[in-house]
């Protein structure tokens, strides 16, 4: 029980710390991404015991797609913004996404270590 609370506490604390750092760098990098880096470093330097955040972390990352549902539903009102340029926006998005996946995937597959 106490460990469950500890995990939630740690994740929220790192998120809050990330938000603070983000504020001081003029939000150049968002707080949650900084929180991710800070948690990674804290685990790496053994400031935080991995076991204490394991359960909550796995719960959060395995259900990440669910947390995007509200943002996705936002499309029902914002699709009108696409306006007269919807065709160029759609084509640019589809082709560019494909090209980014191809570039990143192939370079990593070719030059990275397995």
């Amino acid at each position: 029980m106490i460990n469950g609370v500890k995990g939630v506490m740690l994740i929220l604390t790192f998120l809050a710390l990330g938000e603070v750092v983000s504020h001081f760098i003029y939000n150049f990098i968002p707080g949650n991404v900084i929180g991710m880096v800070l948690l990674f470093m804290a685990l790496q330097f053994k400031v935080v015991n991995p076991h204490s955040v394991e359960y909550i972390s796995l719960f959060l990352v395995r259900n990440m797609a669910l947390f995007f549902v509200p943002a996705g539903v936002g499309l029902m009102v914002s699709y009108r913004l696409l306006g007269e340029h919807w065709l160029s926006i759609t084509l640019a998005t589809v082709l560019s996404t494909f090209l980014v996946i191809a570039t990143v995937g192939h370079i990593q597959q070719k030059f990275g270590k397995k």
Partner: peptide, 27 residues
């Protein structure tokens, strides 16, 4: 949508913690 947004705010909030939790999977 504003009503839905208010109602589903809790789920949207969990996005932040889930990005932080990626630090654990990276570790």
């Amino acid at each position: 949508y504003p009503t839905f947004e208010r109602g589903s705010h809790f789920i949207n909030f969990l996005l932040g913690p889930s990005v932080v939790a990626l630090g654990f999977t990276l570790h």
